[in-house]
Design a binder for these strands. Structure first.
Length: 423
RNA sequence: AGAGGAGUGGCAGAGUGGUCGAUUGCGGCGGUCUUGAAAACCGUUGUACCGAGAGGUACCGGGGGUUCGAAUCCCUCCUCCUCUGCCA
């Protein structure tokens, strides 16, 4: 959520940012926000003044009562009755304005960083770099959904039987590959100085609002209605919310956390040819890195995270490219996002395996995540996160890219974790 | 899940209708003293909103209510503790 004061002070920047996002009627929308905020301020000032009067009368009544002057006390009570009514009306106006303001602010996306290219869709994303060479598979060119059957390592039909579509069952070497990847990713993050956390995978409403999944995207989350809890779509939600309503001291920054969790996404209506096999699932595993930084350091941290994720892909010997997402393709809450995509050689397409974003103060404003600087004043920190990494598409790429006459060769770096070198 | 108890400032812990945003202690910060430190003493020490400022308003787990006035009374939800039950 953007700060109203920021909209006021940086009006032109915010307006240009929304236009880069193709936000309709940005100008009149922003003016409406400011008008509502003005209205809120006015009613609040009036309300506070009346309340001040009422408070002092109440004190007076108290003193009169004590000194036994009942009748005088009764007389001035009449005035407070009137004040009470007026305050109540102003309160109603005020909270109405506040709610409307909040509703508007919730619909405004984050302002893109100046380096974000304009554009409408994924085609307008900027390719920052490509790394590695695409393997020539020759006659061994099965897509992963056939490989998993051939080697009997992941079973979608069993998942359908016990749960439904998009909930695969990993078996044998398939299960061990999952476990190896999770451990590899966690160990790498540990070595890079991230603190490992294991958060709950169900979260309450407050947490959903904190990171921006609510109120708009509740359709994407599984909802345990009996307890009003949501299954997390990403570990970003519980990990970032660890710092909700927290005032850190400056020396605590940066906070660097890593966590492995299963992730759950309903992905309503998105089934089709592009989402076969492991490409899109309702439940999948992901290791996530989260950083809370000083506002001056967040872009530095973003670059670090991008290099870190690239390092993982290099160690896994996967060809990848890095995209800088355009204004139209970026997530709602992000100011700058890099997507990492690996090339899936049998499908002959790029698959997104990581998304690394800087949210600046967009999340921390909702979260009330602040730190106290040297001047003793509190200010909002910046939050960032990235996948490091999401498993299914990594598995798809490893299986497809490394297939050959003798089965599927495993990346060297995983072999100590796996206990085998090929499937 | 049932019965009982409790949630107050960074922490501990007073406060049961009226000058209470809240006694006190510890911790933190600043100072006096000291070559330096400790001790002692003095001062200071929550967050947010409105206001140019003076200042005002709100917050004692969350929400609602009673009252001229609520940390204090009532309702409701949440959390923690104790006992019983169940369970990995």
């Amino acid at each position: 959520m953007l700060l109203v004061n920021h909209i006021r002070d940086q009006f032109d920047v915010v307006l240009a940012g929304l236009q880069k996002r193709n936000f309709p009627d940005a100008l009149s929308f922003l003016n409406q926000v400011l008008a509502l905020d003005d209205q809120r301020k006015t009613t609040q000032t009036q309300r506070d003044q009346l309340q001040a009067e009422s408070n002092s009368i109440s004190k007076e009544i108290g003193m009169l009562m004590k000194s036994g002057k009942r009748e005088e006390a009764e007389q001035i009570k009449a005035r407070t009755a009137q004040l009470k009514q007026e305050i109540k009306e102003l309160d109603e106006q005020n909270s109405k304005a506040e709610e409307e303001l909040k509703a508007l602010l919730y619909t405004i996306p984050n302002i893109p960083h100046s380096s974000v290219p304009a554009g409408k869709s994924a085609e307008d994303n900027e390719v920052v770099l490509e790394h590695g060479s695409i393997p020539a598979l020759g006659e061994y060119k099965l897509p992963h959904w056939e490989l998993i059957k051939k080697y009997d390592i992941i079973d979608f039909d069993l998942g359908v039987k016990i749960t439904g579509a998009g909930f695969p069952v990993y078996k044998g070497k398939g299960a061990r590959l999952q476990r190896a990847l999770i451990n590899f990713f966690l160990d790498e993050a540990l070595n890079a100085g991230f603190l490992e956390v294991q958060p709950p995978i169900l979260v309450n409403e407050d947490s959903g609002y904190g990171t921006g999944q609510l109120p708009d995207k509740e359709g994407q989350m599984y909802h345990a209605t009996a307890d009003n809890l949501y299954l997390i779509p990403t570990a970003e939600v519980p990990i970032t919310n660890l710092y909700r309503d927290v005032i850190l001291s400056e020396e605590d920054l940066p906070i660097r956390n890593v966590g492995y969790t299963p992730c759950f996404r309903r992905e309503a209506g998105s089934w089709g040819a592009h989402v076969r096999g492991l490409n899109r699932l309702h439940q999948f595993d992901k290791v996530e890195i989260v950083q809370i930084t000083h506002p001056d350091k967040s872009y530095e941290a973003l670059e670090e995270m991008s290099s870190y994720v690239q390092g993982l892909l290099q160690k896994l010997e996967l060809p990848y490219r890095v995209l800088r997402l355009c204004g139209g393709d970026m997530g709602f809450t992000s100011a700058l996002t890099y997507d990492m995509e690996v090339f899936s050689a049998a499908q002959e397409r790029w698959l997104e395996v990581s998304s690394v974003s800087n949210f600046e103060t967009y999340q921390t404003n909702r979260l009330k995540l602040r730190f106290r600087g040297e001047d003793k004043k509190t200010q909002l920190a910046h939050s960032l996160n990235g996948s490091a990494l999401a498993l299914p598409r990594i598995v798809a790429a490893i299986l497809e890219n490394n297939q050959g006459p003798d089965g599927i060769q495993m990346p060297k770096v995983l072999q100590p974790y796996l206990g085998f070198d090929r499937i």
